[in-house]
Design a protein around this nucleic acid. Sequence first.
DNA 1: ACGCGCGTTCTAA
DNA 2: TTAGAACGCGCGT
Length: 191
Amino acid sequence: MSYYHFKPPGLQTYIFLKYYYQNSTKSILLQELTMFKDKNEILRITKTNQLKPVDSSNKNEQQIIDNVEKLFNDHFSGKLVDLFTEIQKLKVDLDLKTKYKSEFAFKVLESLVNIKPGETTSYYEIGTQIGSKAYRAIGNACKSNPIPLIVPCHRVLKKNGEIGGFMGKNSDIEWETNLKRELLTLEGAKL
DNA sequence: ACGCGCGTTCTAA
DNA sequence: TTAGAACGCGCGT
């Protein structure tokens, strides 16, 4: 398993990608996208999981990774890229079926991919869309989203307009919600 | 501020 | 493995 990380312009956040390079198809199987506020966490993770950095001697792998980084950089510098659609044009396999752990989580996350940059939805709205009133469970399904930003769980707000949580895996809740707000502001969403 | 509903995860048998 | 308790990016009152 390999990794790559970068910091988009105007964001105080590292984006960390975990992936397999598949030689047979010359494509990348994206395992996970994570966001960190400092490099130390990345260092710790790459060590404990024994991840290897991008194989820069592999021209094709390096090219795909470069393209992916450019996609994110474009988005965060104001181009408002539909990451979910565009990343799949770069020989990146999101492998959604194995990522969604249950039918319920599948429905929730699948309903998010249609939310474009600048748009928002709510947990309630997702509930009516998939025929469920398990609003907190919907939140938990978003929390288990292995590829945030690409599957845009940050575009889900509370029904009453409050920002709601984000990721929920970090101990620093304030950093997470600030990041969510920052992402939405960058996309021009109104809060 | 409290109680609730409900999928998922944790825990104890 | 299995019941049941506990837990949440929420909602309604």
